[in-house]
């Protein structure tokens, strides 16, 4: 998946991005970081074609993506579930447009719920679940759509630290499970530790209008420990990229 030469401005004329170029290879977990308000979530919505760029294009397998598609699935920052549907029905929602018989939908939903560790909770309604369980439901719903690309907008931001840590540990294995159709994940986050823990590639956004000011490949075995000096080194590099002024000084 890639975006090339992307420019974007809001309705009020404010230019958010200029010439953004990002390419995420198959099998990679990529993250986008940047200061608050730089447009990280907006960029993710451009990846998903929820917003249209002023210039440039979004490509999947080399073909332009012109509108939202289940092939590129979004997990929101605010954890989104439908309160009138059970966990299973929430997941089955993403299969409604596929025309599968009900039994097959149930089977896929069940498999997706199993994948995110919610077996046995199929019949609970969202309000009967914790925040972490709800986020797992929304991840399961995205996975059930059999996407090629998963877009995650600060997926742990609304979880308490312990729950977030637990889900972070699981998420990589959930997403790159052999049974998953996923080819790559693009996550937006402001939490640098989380980003180094999960990512293979990190793109740093900064400036006004925002551009990609840095790119980091993380070469560490999983699971990664934040106490590892190599981990610290990556964090320092990221910090340096984020705080570097235009023109080269920190």
């Amino acid at each position: 998946m890639e975006v090339s030469g992307l420019d974007f401005r809001y309705d009020n004329g404010y230019k958010v991005f200029e010439n953004i170029n990002i390419k995420v290879e198959r099998g990679k977990f990529a993250s986008i970081v940047g200061p608050s308000g730089v447009g990280k979530s907006t960029l993710l919505r451009l990846f998903g074609s929820f917003l249209k760029p002023e210039h440039g294009e979004v490509l999947l397998h080399g073909k332009p993506v012109l509108r939202p598609t289940p092939l590129i699935s979004m997990v929101h920052q605010s954890i989104v579930t439908f309160p009138w549907m059970t966990a299973e029905e929430n997941v089955m929602l993403s299969l409604k447009t596929k025309g599968y018989p009900r039994a097959k939908c149930e089977e896929i939903a069940q498999k997706s719920l199993d994948m995110v560790g919610l077996q046995g909770f199929e019949n609970l309604y969202p309000k009967e679940m914790s925040g972490g369980m709800r986020q797992r439901v929304s991840v399961a719903r995205s996975l059930a759509a059999e996407p090629k690309v998963l877009l995650m907008d600060e997926p742990f931001a609304h979880l308490d630290e312990l729950t977030a840590e637990g889900l972070r540990q699981d998420i990589y294995n959930i997403l790159f499970n052999p049974e998953s159709s996923l080819e790559c994940v693009i996550m937006v986050s402001h939490n640098l530790t989380e980003v180094v823990e999960l990512s293979d590639q990190i793109f740093v956004l900064n400036n006004n209008p925002a551009t990609v000011v840095g790119h980091l490949e993380i070469d560490m075995k999983r699971p990664r420990s934040s106490r590892d000096p190599v981990f610290d080194n990556y964090l320092d590099q990221l910090y340096a990229m984020l705080t570097k002024k235009k023109g080269g000084t920190r």
Binding site: F82, L93, T97
Partner: peptide, 22 residues
């Protein structure tokens, strides 16, 4: 919630499915 709109678009739902389920 605006997220519901995004999910409906993301799942490529038609008018009747949008109406019925969301």
């Amino acid at each position: 919630p605006s997220e519901y709109n995004e999910i409906m678009n993301n799942l490529d739902m038609g008018f009747f499915k949008k109406m019925r389920y969301v």
